[in-house]
Nucleic acid binder design. Sequence first.
DNA 1: TATTAGCACTAAGAAAGGAAGAGTGCTAAA
DNA 2: TTTAGCACTCTTCCTTTCTTAGTGCTAATA
Lengths: 340, 340
Amino acid sequence: MIGTRQKELLKEIVEEYVKTARPVGSKTLCKKFKCSSATIRNDMATLENLGYLEKTHISSGRIPSEEGYRYYVDNLMEAKKISGEDMLKLQTIFNNKELELDDAISKSLEIISDITNYTSVILGKESSDNRLQKVEVVPIDSRQLIAIVITDTGHVENKSIVLEENIPTEEISKTTELLNKMLIGTPIDEVPSKLEFEIKPVIRNYIENYEVVYNAFYNALSNFTSERDVKFTGKTNILKQPEFSTVDDVKNIISKFESKDMVSKIEETNDEVKVYIGSENEIDDNVTVVKTKYKVGGREGSIAIIGPKRMEYERVVSMLEYIKEHIEGGKEDKLEKEEQ
Amino acid sequence: MIGTRQKELLKEIVEEYVKTARPVGSKTLCKKFKCSSATIRNDMATLENLGYLEKTHISSGRIPSEEGYRYYVDNLMEAKKISGEDMLKLQTIFNNKELELDDAISKSLEIISDITNYTSVILGKESSDNRLQKVEVVPIDSRQLIAIVITDTGHVENKSIVLEENIPTEEISKTTELLNKMLIGTPIDEVPSKLEFEIKPVIRNYIENYEVVYNAFYNALSNFTSERDVKFTGKTNILKQPEFSTVDDVKNIISKFESKDMVSKIEETNDEVKVYIGSENEIDDNVTVVKTKYKVGGREGSIAIIGPKRMEYERVVSMLEYIKEHIEGGKEDKLEKEEQ
DNA sequence: TATTAGCACTAAGAAAGGAAGAGTGCTAAA
DNA sequence: TTTAGCACTCTTCCTTTCTTAGTGCTAATA
């Protein structure tokens, strides 16, 4: 079992290492713990046996292992303890009620990236329970149409429709009218099934060449909402961290950032602020990812901060918690006010 | 003046250095020129005096200077000489008449990036002479509208409009109707002035609270087309080049790529394929940028290939020329066919 | 029993030296 | 104009040495 002083010691070592990026030696901690280096060394050895500390070589100081960081995050750090200075910076954003939600989120992540030198990512999309407000179809030429879909939160998306054969304009406008009649108010993720099971049977009776028309519209409307906004802030910040000191490290992490499945690895399903240290995340063993999900006012998505494992956990977690609370809480206040 | 053998020599040195990335020594070129290393050395010294060659240190072989590359590009390389293999790869794309223009361009740049290991960028936008086809306005709530603008080439853009005070629905739809009547067929870059000088005076007579409405619409419609598509292919490719062998080099070039004004530095105003070597380009002294402008079928923009100064100039220039010719020529053929 | 002093030991990192190799410039001869 | 020859220069790689910051272990101490 881990003793009280040992816990304190682990906490101190993590924080010291986070600050300096150098292995922590026993002497450094003497004053703090008012005991000799030998005592510290004994405790360090215990913590190493428990798997919380590592050495870079046989006679080096200690650095936290992945388990060490994990223990720190779970048991030692004081989350929710956002510093006054950090809070102040974020407050200026959330006090500005003019700001749109998306802008507020990106501005606050810009601040985090700026003051921490980590990389942050916002992954956003339309909430899947937003409802379809209007379908508009504009002809471009005899075979090409543009379908525009608008949701009740004001999100607009458009798709080009290519018809396999010429269809009279009236057929198109009849279909559009029908779609509007039957689809308005439908949550967008239910649109495909409603098309298939409710609209298709009806269209069949109204429209001459219904298969061509139906297929074209189905393709356009069912792939809606597949696109996601992704915004990186400070993509190169993480390169400033001393852990990326060799060319290969840098190339490696950059190519991970650029890779196609990066986006899917940012998504967070959990509702709290979660910390994924090293091998716990799918991006790279050398980084820590702090993520959370948000959902408010027709928008939902994930926010992630990516930094070295040697990360200022307390700071990042507490700032992310603060942001999450304020975008979800704060913006609901705002919506209520507007409704009055 | 530069003699014939010296030209040959410079050409050979550029090409050898491009291939190997190591300074070229006099011995290497003996067989090729059927003379002794001393002769080569004399000529090299001349070329160095003329500013076309450099040494990395006093007893090293020679590498081309920026002027050397420039001379090579202007006088020595055989452009238009695309290799059969490269041509074949590009042909498969341009023969595929199914492909949309944008896709054809990005596919061909993917190929270039793949086979050369350089980075390519496409900067595209709607042509400024495209014409407005339709304006649609959808209300979201009492104060918020979505304006959707469609051009004759099927490009759609939308902007949210926030009204400063409540405006009756009829006023909005009257305005929309008016806009459609007066703006259809207007080239999009003429929309702002037409709003100001033709629409504003008319609106004044029809609409109660015309200033609020006019301002809201003006903001929405005049900032249209400001957004540009940017697509990088192989952003990390250039890191594979041996010139980026130190961490600082890599970090430096990456941060240039990420910087905000990168996009503006890609734009090419010249109609030919142009080569910007080292300090000639604004991105970074250590890279060469090969750029060209294209304009076809409602789209226009620039294409750029970014690689080390030690670039396969002949290959890149000839491939880019081939692509430019084919997207502009080829797609016009296609358009004509479709019109028949 | 927990702490401490002392000491032998280890690895990293920086500095210095040396040898090999690739290439040059210059001189003088062909 | 070309070439052979030679002294010279730098880079690169390898080895050695020294310093330093740290360790583990043992034995003494509170």
